[in-house]
Structures are given as C-alpha cells and as structure tokens.
C-alpha cells in the first residue's frame, strides 16, 4: 500500500502508523454526555467499504493525515492533512 502524503508525495505504507477511524479527531467536550464519550472512545462504524481514518507519517514528516480508504480493496481514495478543509 502507498499513501500520497500531501507534504512528501507517495510513500510506502511502512513509513506510516495507523491510529483508527477519523472520528477520533472529533473529541467531545469535557462536559459532553457519557454516551458521547463512550461513542468517541469505544464505538465504531467499522464499515466494509470507504472508511475515513487517521494516519501518522511517523517515519516521514510527522504529519497526521486523514485518509479515505476502502477497507474491502485497500484502495486509497483521498489523503489530506488531518485538519485541512474542516470547519
């Protein structure tokens, strides 16, 4: 697998480490409900198909990336910086 790092170009997957679903970027507020926190920390959609996820270019530029990848085919659909174009 190769990931096109927006800063470094296409690199082999061994340069990257994987965190998990991109929902981890949306940390609830401290006063959010228990359900919201349980949801954030533990529950996952785990789709068979396109999946938004967070990767770290740990052996490269250290950027955290938001990758849209198909979990059935491993095809990488998009890669952006983790917080790019988000409101």
């Amino acid at each position: 697998m190769r990931i096109e790092c927006p800063q470094c170009g296409a690199r082999d997957v061994r340069e990257f480490t994987y965190l998990g679903a991109a929902v981890l970027a949306d940390r609830p507020d401290a006063d959010a409900t228990t359900e919201a926190w349980q949801d954030y920390v533990h529950l996952r959609d785990n789709p068979a198909g396109p999946h938004d996820e967070l990767w770290h270019h740990a052996m490269g530029c250290s950027a955290w990336l938001r990758v849209r990848r198909n979990t059935l085919t491993h095809e990488i659909l998009t890669v952006t910086m983790a917080q790019e174009d988000r409101t």
């Binding site: 679903a21 949801d39 533990h42 529950l43 996952r44 959609d45 785990n46 789709p47 068979a48 979990t71």
Partner: peptide, 18 residues
C-alpha cells in the same frame, strides 16, 4: 471478523474494528 457488519443490520454499533 464480520461482527460489525452483521450487527449493523440490527442497528448495533460495537466496540470492534475489523
């Protein structure tokens, strides 16, 4: 392996990744 997918058909979201 497919628990998340099957459970989703029953509307369940689980603490599991495949």
């Amino acid at each position: 392996g497919r628990t998340g997918q099957v459970a989703a058909m029953a509307g369940l979201r689980l603490p599991i990744e495949s």
